[in-house]
Design a protein around this nucleic acid. Structure first.
Length: 592
RNA sequence: GGUUCCGUAGCUCAGCUGGAUAGAGCAACAGCCUUCUAAGCUGUGGGUCACGCGUUCGAAUCGCGUCGGAAUCACCA
């Protein structure tokens, strides 16, 4: 049990004993005392005045006196206005550190018995991954880690959009304009090559559209009438008919893309437990449409199209099946959700998808609820904001899209340059150094993106974002490396970490206090799907350590017992930093 | 126009289940490396928490309204 809960429970007892009134511990506010006041935790007594019928100061004093008498853990207290500041005993903090030290799974919460699927990434196979995908991937991977630490069984899933008119466009351009080019023949990463095809198609379409417009067509008409557009449509029809030539080309080009994606995923450190492909799932959901019709939830228009009327819920009428009997996007999402919940006995399902699809997921939940699935309420859309550049939104037409692979490479190079400048790693073998640069560069990128509240639109400045000072991933990595360095030297001197029977100084108490808050941070992060919370916690801990480090000599401490206790403290700081950053998918090097 | 989200220091962001004098980093300026890693630490300056009203002992935080920005409202995905 954390100190805050413990004190709230004790305060509840105090109120019962003093004022004869039952106040549940959960409704009492106990928070860490602000730096400028003396004490460890503060109980706000204002809400209790109604019960105590005393002035704020008197109420605080009464509870403080009771606590000091009744709890050996409470050493002293002071009251400022309506705030009761409580100091816990040295023994309490010593034991708290011992408890953390002795818990091999510190920060991993007890099992909830729940299975949660997290779907993220879900790329299209017609272009390489970009900065927006990076935010998606990092959020999805981190939230998966956090939910797992929160005691859930997590299934990481992705749904690859590998079919449809957009792929046919790339295929057509490749056939007509690329002269048999392959990733091997061009030395280009497969997803980039296919992306080039897609761009080539767009240019071709633009050309043909312009020609037709000169002949007097409107833009819409011209785009529809363009020969290349017709050919792409023909290709889609052939694909759906299972034409062997088209299918072979489709498989080959998708294969290139997957290989390219795999490489990007590997360098981001991302993996999936379950990969669905749209060519397998795009027909799902049709039987749900029939079910909806039978239930009277959907209605059929004269032209054969099927609709769900959501006007009573403040939304519009939503199409769930086209007049020609083919599915739309939501049809397959309904079917895929149904299949997943049944197949994996899911307790809940998180979708990491950009906020441009807020409406879609609102509708998805509503319709599933209307179809009678009670798990519909356990669907969560983790909606994240766009990533913008200093000059505004990324626009592929203007070529301002930040490519994922380029960005990862830039981060690596920046880490390399900064490290070489410091010259600290001269003795490290080349291979290890490269790994380290990757860890640092990626740490900076991941932290930069994950520390921001997902739902906010965030700004990415390519120049400033590659910063390694201040509230950044490398700062935390560096702090960890420093701690490890001290521990290495201590070990070489034959010292070992041991809490022992010492009295920790106030700064050390602050650090233990932070450490003991870790499990509740994990819980909070899991409840809110919030990596940002853990990022900011890690920074606070690292910063607090750095301040401590600067004015407390550790290895030069003459008292051997105190030295051992400090080693134990800092090794647990390193451990918690590793755990917290691990949940963000950021590795902490032991040296840098 | 309807719905949803956002608005905190020059910039990027924390803080939001209501609590004490609103915090970091960057940028600027001034200090600290014969001492456990200076990717660090210390200090200075920088604020109408978009605006107004309400709720209450107390509001950046909750409610209503206004203004500003974004997303969305397809027989696209």
């Amino acid at each position: 049990m954390g100190a805050e809960q413990f004190l709230a429970a004790k305060a509840s007892e105090a109120v019962a004993a003093l004022f004869g009134s039952q106040v549940p511990a959960t409704s009492l506010q106990v928070a860490p005392t602000r730096k400028e006041f003396e004490g460890d935790y503060t109980l706000v007594v204002f809400p209790l005045l109604r019960i105590s019928h005393l002035a704020p100061e008197a109420t605080g004093k009464a509870i403080g006196d009771w606590l000091v008498d009744a709890c050996p853990e409470v050493a002293s207290f002071n009251v400022v206005k309506g705030f009761l500041n409580i100091c816990l005993s040295g023994a309490y903090w010593r034991e708290a550190l011992q408890a953390i030290d002795g818990d091999g799974n510190y920060g991993t919460l007890p099992s909830t018995g729940k299975t949660i699927m997290v779907e993220f990434s879900s790329p299209n196979t017609n272009k390489p991954l970009h900065l927006g995908h990076i935010r998606n991937n990092l959020l999805g991977a981190s939230v998966s880690n956090i939910l797992q630490a929160g005691g859930n069984k997590v299934i990481k899933a992705t749904l690859v959009n590998d079919r449809g008119i957009h792929i046919c466009k790339s295929m057509l351009a490749w056939k007509q304009l690329f002269d048999g080019a392959t990733p091997a023949s061009t030395g280009k990463k497969g997803d980039h090559l296919v992306g080039d095809c897609y761009v080539a198609f767009s240019n071709l379409l633009k050309q043909q559209t312009a020609q037709l417009m000169e002949q007097g067509m409107s833009k819409d008409e011209a785009e529809k009438a363009a020969p290349c557009m017709k050919e792409a449509h023909d290709m889609l029809v052939k694909w759906e008919q299972g034409d062997s030539e088209v299918r072979a080309l489709w498989e080959m080009m998708n294969g290139w893309v997957f290989e390219g994606f795999d490489q990007t995923y590997r360098s981001l450190g991302i993996s999936f437990d379950k990969v669905d492909y749209e060519h397998d799932t795009y027909l799902l959901g049709k039987e749900l449409v029939q079910k909806g019709l039978d239930m009277g939830v959907f209605t059929k228009d004269p032209d054969g199209s099927v609709w769900c009327d959501l006007t009573a819920d403040g939304l519009d009428r939503k199409l769930v099946l086209r007049g020609d009997g083919t599915s739309v996007y939501i049809t397959q999402d309904l079917g895929t959700a149904e299949r997943r919940f049944a197949q994996y006995s899911l307790d809940s399902h998180v979708y990491v998808v950009g906020n441009e699809q807020d409406y879609h997921f609102q509708v998805l939940k509503l319709i599933l609820g209307k179809l009678g699935y009670d798990w519909a309420s356990q669907i969560y859309h983790l909606s994240y904001g766009m990533v913008e550049l200093p000059e505004g939104k990324m626009k592929s037409r203007e070529g301002t899209v930040v490519d994922a692979d380029d960005l990862i490479e830039d981060m690596y190079n920046e880490a390399k340059a900064t490290s070489e400048e410091s010259g600290k790693l001269a003795d490290m073998p080349e291979e290890e150094r490269e790994k380290l640069y990757h860890m640092i560069g990626l740490g900076a990128l991941k932290y930069f993106i994950l520390k921001v509240d997902p739902k906010k639109t965030m700004l990415f400045d390519p120049r400033e974002s590659i910063d390694f000072n201040g509230n950044t991933g490398p700062f935390i990595q560096y702090t960890h490396a420093r701690i490890c360095s001290i521990l290495r030297k201590a070990e070489a001197e034959g010292r070992s970490p041991e809490v022992g029977d010492v009295v920790l100084n106030p700064k050390e108490v602050r650090l233990v206090k932070l450490l003991s808050a870790y499990p509740s941070k994990v819980q909070e992060a899991a409840d809110n799907f919030s990596p940002a919370l853990l990022a900011n916690y890690s920074y606070e801990l690292a910063k607090e350590f750095n301040q401590y480090y600067h004015d407390t000599p550790i290895l030069r401490e003459p008292d051997a017992e105190l030295l051992s206790a400090r080693l134990s403290l800092i090794s647990n700081i390193a451990r918690v930093l590793r755990a917290a950053m691990g949940l963000l998918g950021i590795e902490l090097p032991y040296r840098m």
